[in-house]
Design a protein around this nucleic acid. Structure first.
Lengths: 303, 303
DNA sequence: CGATCTTACGGGATTCGTAAACATA
DNA sequence: TATGTTTACGAATCCCGTAAGATCG
């Protein structure tokens, strides 16, 4: 079929005329002069190829075909209005969805109050948080399952864009009774020879620690490799060794028997990136959350 | 809510861009230069208040909100297309409905073949025929139950418009053996003293006959008053009397024992009118049938 | 004759296409 | 560098409002 060009204004004019049965009043409703309104109706009739009104100078009323089209026009306008309003709801952040992937270190301590505040402010935005290790976070973004991620790897695919988000320094964790517990800060070389509890090799923390302890650095004395930080805490409390972890994970070690001390080692910082698809903007809801998180990102003192 | 002005062209442009993900090709699809097309998209984004596309010089794709709106836009365009197409069906007389009221005299003999032809030509136009006496016909039009009527009264309400449709002369009906059967035409005065079979007083035929036989006209000799013309035919065949009826009803009297002869009486004609609402045009379907009936209206010789 | 729709027309805004500038892979 | 989008700009078009004309009750 042919596809005439209609504007919503024409439909509104048509409905107004059908309802008022009076050009002058209908024109006023549209804030138009009456001749301009008349032209609008004429153009509509030409576009659809049918007379829609019987008009004399005294009487205006829809033809049979006009009455038929009136229902269509009203429905079309209502649907249009709903569609635009729905879009507006998203723009106004009253509807939408954000899928976020974050490192467990962030997801456990720093994130929850921010999410709670976000939810209070935008109660109808659906939230989907995944806590995963860095690789998993990145993969979720790449696959489109997450809008953005906060993870500790710079990138892993060309279509992704990583931007520095925050960085945190590393801290020694040792029993309160340990000799190092008396110092305010410790240096890497202070750790030489101490029994050291490592995280698994897949962990980004472990990798960062090992790369900082490059050749020439004091050798650690590994005594075990664990997966979970809470296990590490238990081991340290039991006096089986010490460890070094990023500041963001220190909440695992809040215990009377344990102390934490910043490690004074320039370059030993873990960088956390925000990761998103390069050529796809964040949805309005996702952008809102991202802005919020960025505004409240962890402030961690330099070394 | 506010109600932005959108045109179907904008929606089509939007859909084309979402589908092709390429301004140049989408512009070509709309037969527009690419900058003009670009402006169309920009205007749409401003109208709905949301960015709908992420575009770089190398990549164009809908934003999350654009993808959301795409479904709306496609549905809106489809609905619009259906509505306009439906209206077009009526204009093309492939759909519609006609309600017609006609005198039994017309409905029985003259109308059926015309309706059959109309139905063959426009098989999907719904037909609704009512046969009624003139008053009933007019009332149906007045109440909106019929689009137009063919009846023998001029008008009965100010909102109705009656236009001459056709007129038919009156004919004597008598047995073949009757003395008057030998004449080619008869005059009113020839009927004087003959036993005369009247129709009921409510019939327009009876009224017309009586008004023609005004004061000074030869007195008839009424022998009965019947409702149905077929009964009249039987009575005349049985030799109980003669009668005078309009030409259009002569099919009731086609019988070997009967003859019909024109009554040569100036002014003794029954006028039949088309009757419709004054300030409401006929629907396209009704107008089509009306035109057809008018083109084939009964041609009845002048007296 | 008064109310109301249509036509006529001049001015202003919109929209178009060409050409140049700009951006990205 | 090549492809593709945006910006710039002059010209054609469209649309609006005022005023005059036409028509019906």
């Amino acid at each position: 079929m042919n596809e005439p060009d209609l504007s919503s204004r024409q439909l509104r004019a048509f409905v107004a005329l059908a309802e008022t049965r009076n050009f002058t009043r209908a024109a006023a409703r549209l804030h138009l002069s009456q001749p301009a309104f008349s032209a609008l109706i004429r153009a509509l009739e030409e576009a659809v190829g049918a007379r829609l009104f019987d008009r004399s100078t005294r009487h205006v009323e829809p033809t049979v075909e006009g009455a038929l089209f009136l229902e269509s026009a009203q429905r079309l306008l209502r649907d249009l209005s709903l569609s635009v309003a729905d879009l507006g709801e998203h723009v106004a952040r009253r509807r939408g969805r954000v899928a976020l992937a974050a490192l467990p270190a962030l997801a456990a301590g720093w994130l929850p109050p921010l999410l709670a505040a976000f939810r209070a402010r935008y109660p109808d935005i659906e939230l989907d948080v995944a806590d995963a290790l860095s690789e998993g976070c990145v993969e979720r973004v790449r696959a489109g399952h997450a809008d953005f991620a906060l993870a500790a790897v710079r990138a892993s695919a060309p279509e992704l864009l990583a931007q520095p988000f925050c960085s945190d320094g590393f801290h020694l964790v040792c029993p309160r009774t340990h000799a190092l517990a008396r110092r305010d800060t410790v240096r890497l070389r202070d750790l030489a020879g101490e029994p050291f509890i490592h995280l698994a090799r897949t962990s980004s923390v472990r990798q960062r620690v090992e790369s900082a302890l490059g050749p020439g650095a004091p050798a650690l004395r590994p005594v075990m490799e664990l997966e979970q930080l809470s296990t590490v805490a238990g081991m340290v409390r039991a006096g089986l060794g010490i460890t070094v972890v990023p500041a963001l994970t220190l909440f695992h070690f809040e215990h009377p028997d344990l102390v934490t001390r910043p490690v004074d080692a320039p370059g030993l910082r873990r960088q956390i990136y925000s990761i998103r698809r390069r050529d796809r903007s964040l949805s309005i809801a996702a952008q809102a959350l991202f802005d919020e998180l960025l505004a409240h990102r962890p402030v961690l003192r330099e070394t």
